[in-house]
Amino acid sequence: MSFEDWYRADRLPHIFCAGCGNGTIINCTLAAVEQMNWKREETVFVSGIGCSSRAPGYILTDSLHTTHGRAIAFATGVKMANPDLHVVVFTGDGDLAAIGGNHFIHGCRRNIDLTVVCMNNQIYGMTGGQGSPTTPKGALSTTTPYGCAETPFDLCDLAIAAGANYVSRWTSYHVKELEKAVKVGLETPGFSFIEALVQCPTAFGRRNKFRQVADHIEFLKTHSLLRAKRDRLLEKGEPVPEDMFVVGELMRRNRPAIGVKP
């Protein structure tokens, strides 16, 4: 058995652009699910709207492809109606943090037993490349033609502040680490949030000096700062490089949760 057995082979190849990182994140998530020995009938994938949200359509289990931003709301319904089900949510940065922002923070606050995997490509990919709440300062998009002037959300900080039990961040370069993080998320009762930074060559890379897909992967590799390293810098009172983002496990705790299998 391997993660490939969870795909609907008849639906592949999928519609994602060449080099789109979404496929990598689905691989890593399914590889983690595969290790859980869950039955297909007891596993449900839920998503909203966006390129990333098309993921459940390629997976063999029952799934819900819902309305934009509402994946966590629907997943809450599924989980509360039948806590025996294992519910995994796929979402995008726009889906999760823009239109679905309130569902996200209240999912974390309730600490409902879901695992949410966010493919953060820092853009609205599906609708042609509008800026999202995670578009970095200075980045070009169709709605920020002179460079984004706003400060982006840190999705992991948001999840931690709102109360999620498990939070980690990796990228489409760190496939093994991401697989392990998703597995810990699936095992942890309560709300687990895993952010995966991904490349979107079509709507983001093309406009932001990542002409080749590999250039973006190289950026994700060289600009990620391990949490342990960041903590050491802070301890020594040295500055944390501003152009880097922290990766690794950022929170693991045991707040009261709801929807946990009795």
């Binding site: 391997s2 190849p13 994602f16 979404n22 990598t24 691989n27 890593c28």
Partner: peptide, 15 residues
Amino acid sequence: RQLCGVCQLTCPDQA
């Protein structure tokens, strides 16, 4: 068991 497999996990197109 599966060893390494980094290329397979990375390949966005399950190829």
